[in-house]
């Protein structure tokens, strides 16, 4: 029981407290402690990827074994993973090698950029579907969005003043309100974790 639950909670409590105090001490000893802990977290965190991999292979090998139309795609995913990792680790030049960087540039970069650019379609469809003046508040949302959008086009410069006003005053006000709330909530939740009140991150069981 101690090792299973109390010790992890104790680690969180002591390390959390130490990191809070560390913040106020500019002395090199404290800075070194900070650096070492950052390095420890980084090192131990690197191993977590193996858990992800095990899940990845679990899911895709099972789909592969089922031999239905999903199998082909799972095979593709596994092949790409092994190929990319293999070339990156064993290939000449490692991650700076010719093949690895070309694969990165012509597979991951364009896929990334294209997925990201889908947003320009979705932002339009979201506006069309959701911006309906169902009530006064929805109307306010819609009107501000339209004013700001108009202000962005070439001949919308006459709206610059009002757009800036919206961004600087009402927009900042609401964002500040939300951020203040988030700040307080974050502090409280961090404290709850340090004090061991919030312990869901340990997963279920005892």
């Amino acid at each position: 029981m101690f090792l299973k639950r109390t010790l992890p909670l104790l680690i969180v409590f002591l390390l959390g407290l130490a990191m809070i105090i560390q913040f106020y001490i500019p002395h090199p000893v404290s800075q070194n402690f900070y650096d070492s802990m950052a390095e420890w977290v980084r090192i131990s965190g690197a191993f977590a990827l193996i858990l992800g991999l095990s899940s990845f292979f679990y899911v895709h090998t099972r789909k592969l074994a089922r031999k239905n139309k999903d199998s082909f795609y799972s095979g593709v995913a596994i092949l790409c993973l092994i190929g990319m990792a293999g070339i990156g680790i064993f290939g000449r030049g490692g991650i700076n090698g010719w093949l690895f960087s070309n694969l990165y540039r012509s597979i991951i970069v364009p896929l990334d950029a294209t997925m990201f650019s889908l947003l320009s379609f979705y932002i339009a469809s979201a506006a069309f579907k959701a911006f309906k003046a169902r009530n006064a508040m929805a109307f306010a949302l819609l009107v501000t969005a339209i004013i700001v959008m108009l202000g962005r086009v070439s001949f919308g410069s006459f709206l610059d003043g009002i757009v800036e006003w919206i961004l600087v005053y009402p927009n900042t006000a609401a964002q500040r309100g939300i951020i203040l709330g988030i700040g307080l909530g974050m502090i409280a939740t961090s404290l709850k974790i340090i004090l061991g009140i919030e312990r869901s991150y340990l997963g279920g069981g005892d």
């Binding site: 680690i11 990191m19 106020y24 802990m37 131990s44 203040l180």
Partner: peptide, 28 residues
């Protein structure tokens, strides 16, 4: 759970004070 605890303690500890500064003080 042990490495998870290491990570949680570290991040919760370092996040509190900067959060007070950027989320509270600067905004106020």
């Amino acid at each position: 759970r042990w490495p998870i605890a290491l990570m949680m303690g570290y991040y919760c500890g370092i996040s509190i004070s900067p959060s007070i500064e950027t989320n509270i003080f600067t905004q106020v």
